[in-house]
Simulated assay, not measured.
Amino acid sequence: MQIQFWRLVLLLSWSSWRRTVLLITSAALVACDNGSITLSVTDTPADEVSRVVVQFSAVEFEDSGGDWERVELKPELQVDLLALRGGDSKVLIADESIPSGSYRRIRFVIDADSNGSESYVDRTNGGRIALEPDGGEDARPTVDFRFSLDDGDDVALTVDFDLRRGLIEPDDFSDPYRLRNALRVVDDEFSGRVRGTVSAALLSNACEPALYVFDGEDADVGDIGADNEPLTSVGLVAQNGSSGLSYSIGFLEAGDYTIAFTCDAEGDDPEDDDELSFRRERNFEIEEGEETILDIN
C-alpha cells in the first residue's frame, strides 16, 4: 500500500508538471503572435509659416481584411512638423505590439478645434491660425502602404507629411488651414538620404528656391499638383560663410531619382497646375542606409 501511494504521488506530480509546461508553451505561442512596429513622422517644409503643430491622439493600421488596429497615444502628442526638416523625424509610437499579418493602410487621428488650441499654424508675419484635416475636424489623414509583420518581427516606418503639397492656406483669415492627404511612407531599413549645396550662380535676386525630387532617372518634371508632380520637395537654407545654399532630404527609398532646382517655388499652388521653370536637373541614386552627396552647380 505504501509503494502504491508513492506511485500515485509521482504520477500526479508528473501530470501537474506536464500541464504546467503546456500552459507555459501555449502562453509563449500567444505572446509571439504579434509583431512590433515603430512609426515616426517627418516633414517636407512649407513656405511662409514658422510652426505647423499637429496634435496626434492615435494611429490606426488597416489589415488586408479591412479591420483596423488602433494604437492610442497617451498622452496626446503635439508635434511641430516644420521642425522636422533635413531628415529629422519624431517617433509617435515605439516598439508597439500589434497582431501579425498583412497591412495596407495607415491613418492618423488628429485633435483639431476651431480656436487652434490643439493643432495650429503660426505664420512668419505673425498670427496663429487653427489647423484641421482636409474634410473637417473629424477627418483622418490616410495613406496607402502595404507591409507584412510576421510573428516576433519588428518594422520601423516613417511617414512624410509633405507640407509643401499638403498645407492649404485659407482664403479668409477666419478659416483654418487645411492639412490634406499629402503623405508618403518609407520603410526605414530600405531608405537613405541625399544632401548637398546649390551654387550661388543659380540664384537671382527674385529667386524663391526649392528642390523637387522625382522617381526615376531623367524623369518628366512638373509642379506640385501636376500629373507628373514630385515625390517630395524641399526648401534651401543659407550656409555659414558661403553665398550658396544647402539642402538635405531624408527617408528616400533606395532607387534612382531626378532632382530639379527652381526659383519659382513661391508661385507653386498645390491646388493648381502651375508653370514652373527648372534651372537644373540632375540624376542621383539612393542606397539603403547610405548618404548621397549631390551638389547642384
Rank of each mutant, 00 (worst) to 15 (best):
S26R: 09
A201E: 13
L12V: 15
D223I: 04
I93E: 00
V79R: 01
A58H: 13
Y177F: 15
L203K: 13
I106W: 03
P133K: 07
S204I: 01
A27Y: 11
D67C: 08
D218P: 02
L77D: 15
D268K: 02
E189C: 05
D33W: 08
F261N: 11
D122T: 00
D223F: 02
L294A: 06
V53C: 05
S89I: 01
Y120S: 06
P75Y: 06
D188N: 14
W17T: 11
V91M: 13
E96T: 07
I224K: 04
T262H: 10
V91E: 13
L203E: 08
D160W: 08
Y103V: 08
W14M: 10
D295K: 00
L183W: 10
V159S: 11
R51V: 00
R107E: 05
L92F: 09
T232Q: 02
D111L: 15
V121D: 01
E169I: 06
L236W: 12
V41R: 04
A94Y: 09
S64V: 12
L8C: 04
D171Y: 01
R184E: 13
F284K: 06
S89K: 15
I106V: 15
L183C: 12
W68V: 15
S191Y: 01
E291H: 01
G244I: 07
G127V: 07
A28E: 10
A27L: 13
Y120D: 03
F145I: 09
G241F: 09
D162C: 14
A31V: 04
S243V: 08
A260S: 11
L179K: 05
I106T: 05
E291M: 05
V121M: 00
E96A: 08
S100A: 14
D162E: 14
E290C: 00
V194N: 04
A46W: 00
V30K: 07
V41P: 03
E137P: 06
N240E: 11
R282F: 09
N34M: 04
A238Q: 07
D162L: 10
P230T: 01
S89P: 00
F214H: 11
R279H: 12
L81M: 05
Y257A: 01
G65S: 11
F147T: 12
A112G: 14
E266K: 15
V49M: 00
V9G: 00
D113I: 02
R18F: 07
L203Q: 12
E271D: 12
L231Q: 03
A83Q: 14
D268R: 05
I286W: 02
G250H: 09
V213Q: 07
S114Q: 11
V109P: 00
T124A: 13
V143P: 12
F145Y: 15
D138L: 13
D162I: 06
G225W: 08
C207W: 11
A156W: 03
F5K: 07
D218G: 02
E48N: 15
D150N: 11
N228E: 10
Q78V: 05
